Computed example of a mutant assay.
Amino acid sequence: MSAMIGLILAFIGFTVASIVTARSVFINSTFNSKVLFSVAIGAIISQLVAVRAMLFVNNELHLSLTSMCLLINALIVVVLTIRSFKNSNLMILLVTYGFSALLSLAIIFVPNDSLAYMGVSINSSVPLIIHIVLSVSAYCVLVISSLYAIQFRYIDSKLKSKTLSLNSHLPSLNVVELQQFRLMAIGLILLTAALFTGFLFLDNMWTKQYAHKTILSLIAWAAFATLTIGHKIYGWRGSNSAIATILASLILTLAYFGSRFVREILLT
């Protein structure tokens, strides 16, 4: 299966999954988990096939902007879908599946000779692969944590305005906050390991080309570490912690993708 076919099937699958989820959320129709997860798993497999075709070019690992965006999106969807097997969070699934459909559709229309498809081809040295895996894993977990923070803000505003219906599919505020900080702690450990391996094995962390990425990553790490420690020791929680989590994730996104977008697309 080619990358294009995989993207088309992923777009169709995620669109159907979004519609099924939206019906359950907004129309209060019967939630058929078997149908939803069957369609979602098919879409995820199609997206992963497309990711593989874009990542491995001529037996080399090719890290283009599009392949990395699609890879991280696929991993986030996998984690959230698996987590929903036991405890369904339809609102987060709706946002995730909807975004995945739009991302797949957007990449379909990106020309193959676009700068977004161009990137560095790297060797398969073990230290570098470890650093990349840790970095991608950390980003995925911390983004999911920020999704829970966004949901926390949404539920909190609904409760304060007294507009949250009794038959809402939204989970309780305490459950969402617990997931937010639990995932943040895991993501912080992964991000710490990613930065450590980067400083240990790579010699370009402070070069002109990557210094801004390193600085932004350290700022994000400091923000997540402060939030995690503050929650553990001082009991920090609530709306301000949720906002701080979202901002920290945005800083990390700038570190991972913002610099590449500016360097590879805008300045080329």
Rank of each mutant, 00 (worst) to 15 (best):
S46A: 15
D203K: 04
L103V: 01
G187S: 08
V51H: 05
L105Y: 08
V49A: 12
S88H: 11
A116R: 09
A53H: 11
Y97R: 01
S46F: 05
V126N: 10
V78A: 01
S38V: 13
A211Q: 13
H212K: 07
C69H: 10
K162N: 14
I44D: 03
N73G: 08
S145C: 05
N174T: 14
F31M: 08
V25T: 04
L170N: 07
V175A: 15
T207N: 12
R260P: 00
F181R: 03
R153F: 12
V16I: 14
H131I: 05
C69Y: 14
G238W: 06
A255K: 11
L159I: 09
T192E: 01
L250C: 10
G6V: 02
Q47K: 06
A222F: 14
V49I: 15
L70M: 08
Q209C: 03
A17K: 02
L170M: 12
L202I: 09
S33E: 11
I219Y: 11
A244S: 07
T228E: 08
L216N: 02
N174E: 15
A223Y: 09
A255Y: 08
P171F: 02
R263K: 11
Y148F: 13
N58F: 07
A10Y: 07
A53V: 01
L103G: 02
Q179R: 14
A101Y: 00
L7C: 04
D156M: 08
F261T: 07
A10K: 04
L134R: 00
W206T: 15
A116S: 07
F201S: 08
T81A: 07
A74C: 01
S157C: 03
S157A: 15
I122T: 10
G42C: 04
V141N: 00
R237G: 06
S165C: 02
L48W: 11
A185F: 09
T268N: 13
F201N: 02
F201I: 05
T15P: 14
F199W: 10
I243R: 14
